[in-house]
Amino acid sequence: MTQIVFDANTGESHEEDWTPPTAAPPAPSEVDAERDRRIAAGFTFAGLFFQSRPDDRENISGASTAALGAMVAGAQQGDFRWTGRDVDFTWIAADNSEVPLDAHSMFALGTAAMAHKEDHIRAARALKDMDPIPADFATNPAYWP
């Protein structure tokens, strides 16, 4: 590519070869940041949207483990008092609605949270294996679950 260069001192112009600068390909750390953002953005389970920031995932994991223990101890589907408390167990969805969950459903919510995170980790791994990493990795939904 050529460009015309003007010399302000002499008033003369001439053509020079010029290569436009190219942006450096995205770094793996940028893919990791987008992966983490997408993981924390939330997921849908049973038609409802749930938050999945790190503390949310920790809480879901803990409740899911408790649900598994209750299932091993014999908790039945449809039993919303599987925690041993005198109130139905509910989980708060992103819209602040309280969702009653039996132990089996709570365990399924935990499994869905795990799959949400794992799917994004694998998508990011595939992106980081590309050479170069596509410039539109963060905006092109084809790269992400």
Score class of each variant (00 low, 15 high):
residue 89 F to K: 00
residue 140 N to M: 06
residue 6 F to V: 10
residue 4 I to M: 12
residue 120 H to K: 03
residue 144 W to G: 01
residue 102 D to N: 02
residue 56 D to T: 15
residue 128 K to R: 09
residue 116 H to N: 03
residue 85 R to H: 09
residue 3 Q to P: 03
residue 119 D to S: 13
residue 51 Q to M: 11
residue 74 G to S: 12
residue 104 H to A: 07
residue 28 P to Y: 10
residue 129 D to A: 08
residue 71 M to A: 11
residue 8 A to I: 12
residue 52 S to L: 09
residue 103 A to V: 00
residue 110 G to R: 00
residue 96 N to L: 09
residue 51 Q to K: 13
residue 125 R to H: 09
residue 97 S to P: 02
residue 121 I to N: 01
residue 111 T to F: 10
residue 28 P to R: 09
residue 112 A to Q: 01
residue 28 P to E: 14
residue 69 G to R: 07
residue 43 F to Y: 11
residue 144 W to E: 03
residue 2 T to E: 14
residue 10 T to D: 06
residue 82 W to G: 00
residue 121 I to W: 08
residue 70 A to K: 00
residue 26 P to D: 05
residue 132 P to A: 03
residue 133 I to G: 03
residue 117 K to C: 06
residue 3 Q to W: 12
residue 44 T to D: 12
residue 92 I to F: 06
residue 63 A to H: 14
residue 75 A to R: 00
residue 23 A to Q: 09
residue 24 A to P: 05
residue 6 F to N: 08
residue 135 A to E: 10
residue 42 G to T: 15
residue 82 W to Q: 06
residue 51 Q to W: 14
residue 11 G to H: 10
residue 140 N to H: 14
residue 87 V to D: 06
residue 14 H to M: 10
residue 139 T to Y: 06
residue 72 V to P: 03
residue 133 I to V: 06
residue 112 A to Y: 01
residue 40 A to T: 10
residue 51 Q to E: 09
residue 82 W to Y: 06
residue 97 S to G: 04
residue 56 D to G: 13
residue 58 E to W: 15
residue 28 P to Q: 05
residue 7 D to H: 07
residue 143 Y to S: 02
residue 38 R to N: 07
residue 21 P to W: 08
residue 6 F to A: 04
residue 49 F to P: 02
residue 117 K to F: 08
residue 118 E to L: 08
residue 82 W to E: 00
residue 29 S to L: 07
residue 16 E to K: 11
residue 23 A to R: 11
residue 116 H to E: 01
residue 47 G to H: 14
residue 20 P to Q: 07
residue 125 R to S: 06
residue 16 E to G: 10
residue 121 I to P: 00
residue 62 G to N: 12
residue 104 H to V: 01
residue 22 T to K: 05
residue 107 F to W: 10
residue 92 I to A: 05
residue 137 F to G: 00
residue 49 F to L: 13
residue 137 F to I: 05
residue 108 A to K: 02
residue 116 H to D: 01
residue 45 F to K: 01
residue 5 V to D: 02
residue 114 M to W: 05
residue 82 W to V: 02
residue 131 D to N: 04
residue 44 T to P: 07
residue 129 D to L: 13
residue 47 G to D: 13
